[in-house]
Simulated assay, not measured.
Amino acid sequence: MNMTTRVSRLRGDRVTLAHGGGGRAMRDLIEEVFTDVFRPPGREDQARLTSEALQEAGAQLAFTTDGYVVTPVEFPGGDIGKLAVCGTVNDLAVGGARPLWLSASFIIEEGCEIALLRRIAATMAAEAEAAGVRIVTGDTKVVEKGGCDTLFVTTSGVGAIPPGRDIAAVNIRPGDVAIVNGVLGDHGATILAARGDLALSTPIESDCAALGHLMEDVIAAAPGMRAARDLTRGGLASALNEMAAEAGVTVELSDEALPIRPEVRGMCEILGLDPLYLANEGRAVLFVPEAQAEAALAAMRARPEGEGAAVVGRAVTAGRIPVVTKTAFGGTRIVDMLVGEQLPRIC
């Protein structure tokens, strides 16, 4: 029986503590808002799963988990549910895994609108289907008013790394080219504007997107891909510092090559922020051998989530500084690891 034919058993339009008490009210909330939408296999306390992808000799299991506490929970270009699905899919995909299954845990504040939960669950189901994964198990808790900020979501993901695939930062070599799949900083700028604290108005939307299909296309086109990272908190700068340290190389960027919208640059100039540290939720940096860079770019640009792909730099023999960028004036500046966080509650 689907939601169009069943009369809702939920009473009221907001979550109460009774919805977390383990009784009928909780069952009704979980079934009508989540399981009717996600349609997990079975109703046991665990998901029982099999996949041919894990049966291949030499295949590896990839497992990741992440929590999402973004405020506001809905913003231009997405919501906390889309972030949770895309973020976990991307954590698997950049390691070369083919994402298979997700879990989803919800911490809901008393008074949260049930209509909001329905919208977020619908977004999660749609994003999971588009990414080729299933949400197969989860949990729901309700806390008293003030116990959290509307809604927190934690997702875990399982994927399969095919035999022989080795994508890791330690594989980066001098001469490898660094490529990003689109403009940088849109998510961080969107969340900052959506909060309304600074009376900023901007048409920018979050870049939130799942990158599993893009990664598979790039790996097929550039099978020598060395490494990849998704650019979340700390942005491109922090990701590159981590990768350079693991690989024992220096990464040289070019300011003029960095794809950043004028609106994002302008916002950063007004607020004293550096766009290289702004969070992204649908962007990754990939290192490929120079001979395969054009093929990787073409594969990215063939997909909507990679239309703005660009070469931003390259790895060179390790120097004293892990990441530097060449400025438009011919000088060089250090791109250090972010200390603290430019913006809190960004994802």
Results as ranks from 00 to 15, higher is better:
T4R: 09
R9M: 08
D13R: 07
R14Q: 07
A25C: 03
V33S: 01
F34C: 01
D36P: 03
D36F: 07
P41S: 06
G42C: 06
R43S: 12
E44R: 14
Q46V: 13
L54S: 11
E56K: 15
V70L: 07
E74C: 10
I80N: 01
T88K: 06
N90E: 09
A93Q: 00
A93R: 02
V94E: 05
V94M: 03
V94A: 03
G95N: 08
R98Q: 12
W101R: 03
I108C: 00
L116K: 03
R118E: 14
R119H: 14
M124P: 07
A128K: 00
E129K: 13
G132Y: 02
V133L: 01
T137C: 06
T140P: 04
V142T: 02
K145A: 12
C148Q: 01
V153T: 11
T154G: 09
G159S: 03
P162V: 00
P163R: 05
A169G: 08
G175Q: 08
G182K: 00
G185L: 04
G188N: 12
I191P: 06
A193M: 09
L198M: 13
S206C: 09
A210Y: 14
H213P: 13
I219Q: 11
I219M: 11
I219L: 08
A220Y: 04
D230G: 09
L231Q: 06
T232W: 09
L236E: 15
S238P: 07
A239V: 00
L240R: 12
M243I: 14
G248M: 02
V249R: 07
V251D: 01
D255P: 02
A257T: 13
A257P: 10
L258D: 11
P259T: 15
I260E: 06
I260V: 15
E269W: 00
G272K: 05
D274G: 11
P275V: 08
G282K: 06
E294H: 04
A296R: 04
M300E: 07
E305S: 11
G306K: 01
G308A: 05
A310L: 08
V311I: 14
R314T: 00
I321N: 00
V324I: 10
G330Y: 04
G331K: 11
G331I: 10
T332M: 13
L338H: 11
E341Y: 00
